[in-house]
Amino acid sequence: MGGVEMYNKPWGLPPGNQRPWQYCPPQNMPVQHDPSQTSPTRHYVKTNIINTVIPVFHPAHTTTVNKHVITYQHYFPYRCNGVNGYSPQGLGYAPPGHSYSRSRFR
């Protein structure tokens, strides 16, 4: 089969058994343009995540109070002297043959 015969295929007998139809090769016609068609708009959502750092300061202050506790310890030194003394008394009693003299008690 040649190139033309490829397009000219008989699809049966013509009506009334007449002569077979003749087929011509197809012709390329110029491209035709119809009015454009627009489908409904599709909406898309694109999310951008942007990280932002915000420094937050929480200031604090500590005051140190040093409390000095002063304890007074009072001392009252006091001296006492004790003197043991004795003084003999003459009761007017003397054993027989014995006498007291003043020189003996000095």
Rank of each mutant, 00 (worst) to 15 (best):
M1G: 11
M1T: 11
G3I: 11
V4K: 14
V4W: 02
E5I: 02
M6K: 09
Y7P: 00
Y7Q: 06
N8R: 14
N8C: 12
N8V: 04
N8A: 15
K9I: 15
K9E: 08
W11M: 09
G12L: 01
L13Y: 10
L13S: 11
P15Q: 02
P15G: 05
G16V: 00
N17V: 03
R19D: 11
R19C: 04
P20H: 04
W21K: 09
W21S: 11
W21L: 15
Y23K: 00
Y23T: 04
C24L: 15
P25K: 02
N28Y: 05
M29D: 05
V31W: 04
H33D: 03
D34H: 11
P35W: 01
P35Q: 04
P35A: 01
S36F: 10
T38A: 11
T38W: 05
T38L: 09
T38R: 06
P40K: 05
T41A: 14
R42Y: 01
R42T: 09
H43T: 13
H43V: 13
Y44F: 10
Y44R: 11
K46G: 00
N48Q: 09
N48S: 10
I49G: 02
N51Q: 08
I54S: 05
P55N: 00
V56G: 00
H58A: 04
P59H: 04
A60H: 13
A60P: 00
A60I: 08
T62K: 03
T62I: 14
T63Q: 10
T64F: 04
K67T: 15
H68V: 14
H68R: 07
V69A: 03
I70P: 00
I70E: 08
T71Y: 04
T71G: 00
Y72A: 10
Q73I: 13
H74P: 02
Y75R: 09
F76W: 15
F76M: 07
F76N: 12
P77I: 01
R79N: 12
C80P: 02
N81W: 04
G82C: 06
V83H: 03
N84W: 03
G85K: 07
G85S: 13
Y86H: 12
S87F: 01
S87D: 12
P88E: 03
P88L: 05
P88S: 01
Q89R: 10
G90A: 12
L91D: 14
L91I: 05
L91F: 04
G92Q: 07
G92Y: 01
Y93M: 06
P95Y: 01
P96V: 09
G97I: 00
H98W: 15
S99Q: 15
Y100K: 05
R102Q: 10
S103V: 05
S103Q: 14
R104I: 06
F105K: 00
F105T: 03
